[in-house]
């Protein structure tokens, strides 16, 4: 397998699994067209992430990223947590295969969204926790996949990535 030892450890024994009851912030990202969905819930106390949990539908890398990002964010101030990047998550995992780098984006994105959700709620803009819906939602999101090699966003179907020029998996 192409995964590092750390990735395999976090995949096989992920930390912080689950969904916090009555969370202070929820971040949901991804869609099943690209293959991954992630939900991060946080509890905030004194401007710090007091508790954090994740649920993930996705490949081994996506699960490992979720576990790692929650470990990295736990106990951090919100400002510190906002600074966690895709790159630092991937680095802490000992690297990810190139075509899986987009999974690390999901992890940081879900965390940042959960924090933004917390701020929004504090300002009195509570958002309905969005549930993953079926096909309608996914088809709208289909254009939001990323190049498995360079991670550029793919806006339209093309046999080549317009950013790095590598051939893309063509399914039709």
């Amino acid at each position: 397998m192409q995964y590092s030892e750390t990735v395999m450890e976090h995949f096989k024994s992920p930390k912080n699994i689950g969904r916090i009851e009555n969370p202070d912030g929820i971040g949901e990202v991804g869609n099943p067209v690209c293959g991954d969905m992630m939900t991060i819930t946080i509890k905030v106390k004194d401007n710090r992430i007091d508790d954090i949990k994740f649920e993930t539908f996705g490949c081994g890398a996506a699960i490992a990223v979720s576990s790692m990002v929650t470990e990295m964010a736990k106990g951090k101030t919100l400002e510190e947590a906002m600074k966690i990047t895709n790159k630092s998550v991937a680095e802490n995992l000992g690297g990810l295969p190139k075509n899986k780098l987009h999974c690390s984006n999901l992890g940081a994105d879900a965390l940042h969204k959960a924090i933004m959700d917390y701020y929004n709620r504090k300002e009195g803009k509570p958002k309905e926790p969005k549930q993953f819906e079926k096909v309608e939602y996914m088809e709208k999101k289909e254009a939001g996949c990323h190049c498995p090699y360079c991670d550029a966003e793919l806006s339209e179907p093309s046999p080549f990535c317009k950013s790095c020029g590598k051939p893309l998996p063509v399914d039709k």
Binding site: C34, F57, N99, V135, M138, P148, P169, D171
Partner: peptide, 23 residues
């Protein structure tokens, strides 16, 4: 041959699978 692909299988989508199910 398609295992590098991250998208749901075109075969399963063609027979009417939902994306999440196909994955």
């Amino acid at each position: 041959c398609a295992s590098g692909s991250l998208r749901a299988s075109h075969v399963l989508i063609a027979i009417g699978s939902e994306y999440a199910t196909a994955q």
